[in-house]
């Protein structure tokens, strides 16, 4: 009997990957990394790692007889080649432990260590800034223009009013058609629920942006700010202040996660309130205000005049996820 320490190390690494993913699921921290929609996928990865671990442990010990068999096998393959590694274009973990190997094992161990030892942190305002900040918030508005008209039109800031309202109508028709198949949001909802949500947006006395509908409503509002001017709105988010904003302005934003936090995109509302200077980055607030319109760098943005606000704890699930609508 002979023990192969490298094979043991490999087995340990496989098990550790399984354990890391399992631990994240167990503590619920997984939602700080990926969209819960993909939880099953990562669970199956964890199970696969466990399975590979069980295969790997059989390779830790080899008996003399097998050893010879293995060698013989190698010999057979090697006849065609001069070099030593021959058909074994990859490392089987049998070759001696060298500095190069130490490096590659350290690389593989690195994420395991940081994954186990460092706490899962929520993305914060500094990431919002790196993602482009307020500049990317105006997007849906422009998108409407591009899909209705040609590219040049979107570049022109001054579309005359007549033209504009026409486009708007066109857009509405289009929207109605799309309603059935549309949109992305947290978890799965049925079509009727989705329709109801949209209806609520237009009819409710105050727009309540809870996590489920946040990105849907956000998109609707940005698409056609005029329709919502003067409406009352309630939502929560973290504070993000950007250079160039007036002292009474700040952005209250959320991150929308499609797959994992690496693809987080920022959505949020430019807001105005007297106490803004007292508020600091990354502070979570729940606010109530009235929707207005503001031009920012040539794009129109909804601006929320805050009437009431209150500091809150960061929610356990700080992120938003796109809704998926079941289409039969």
């Amino acid at each position: 009997m002979k023990i192969h320490f490298q094979q043991a190390l490999r087995a340990l690494i496989l098990l550790a990957f399984c354990g890391l993913i399992f631990q994240l699921h167990y503590t619920g921290d997984i939602t700080k990394y990926i969209n819960p929609k993909y939880v099953r996928l990562s669970q199956s990865a964890s199970i696969l790692f466990l399975f590979l671990f069980f295969i790997q442990i059989t390779r830790i010990w080899t008996s003399k007889r097998e050893e010879e068999g293995h060698e013989h096998h190698h010999g057979e393959n090697c006849r065609h080649h001069d070099d030593h590694s021959c058909s074994h274009h990859h490392d089987h973990g049998d070759t001696p432990f060298t500095g190069k190997k130490l490096l590659s094992y350290s690389i593989i161990l690195f994420p395991l260590l940081t994954g186990f030892f460092l706490p899962a942190k929520t993305l914060d305002a500094s990431i919002a800034e790196k993602k482009g900040g307020l500049a990317i918030l105006g997007n849906q508005k422009q998108e409407v223009n591009t899909s209705a008209g040609s590219d040049e039109k979107a570049d022109e800031p001054d579309i005359d009013l007549e033209d504009y309202s026409l486009e708007e109508e066109l857009e509405e028709v289009e929207e109605l058609e799309h309603d059935l198949s549309v949109n992305e949001e947290v978890q799965e909802i049925s079509n009727e629920e989705f329709e109801q949500l949209k209806k609520d947006l237009y009819s409710a006395p105050a727009i309540k942006m809870d996590d489920k509908v946040f990105s849907l409503y956000y998109e609707e509002i940005s698409k056609d700010i005029d329709k919502f001017i003067g409406r009352e709105i309630e939502f929560q988010g973290f504070i993000y202040k950007e250079e160039g904003l007036a002292s009474n302005q700040l952005v209250i934003s959320r991150f929308l996660i499609t797959h994992c936090v690496a693809d987080a995109s920022m959505i949020g509302f430019l807001s105005e309130m007297e106490e803004a200077p007292e508020l600091y980055d990354n502070m979570w607030v729940k606010v109530r205000g009235v929707i207005q319109k503001e031009a920012y760098n040539g794009t129109e943005l909804p601006l929320i005049k805050i009437k009431e606000w209150q500091e809150i704890e960061e929610p356990f699930i700080p992120y938003l996820y796109p809704l998926t609508i079941k289409i039969l």
């Binding site: 993913i21 990394y33 990926i34």
Partner: peptide
């Protein structure tokens, strides 16, 4: 051990994004 020492927040952000890319890619 996790909470016992101070790490700059940007490094923690880095770690979260790093691990999330891996978790996403591993399957």
């Amino acid at each position: 051990l996790a909470l016992s020492f101070d790490i700059p927040p940007s490094l923690l952000n880095l770690n979260v994004i790093f691990i999330s890319i891996l978790i996403e890619a591993l399957p």
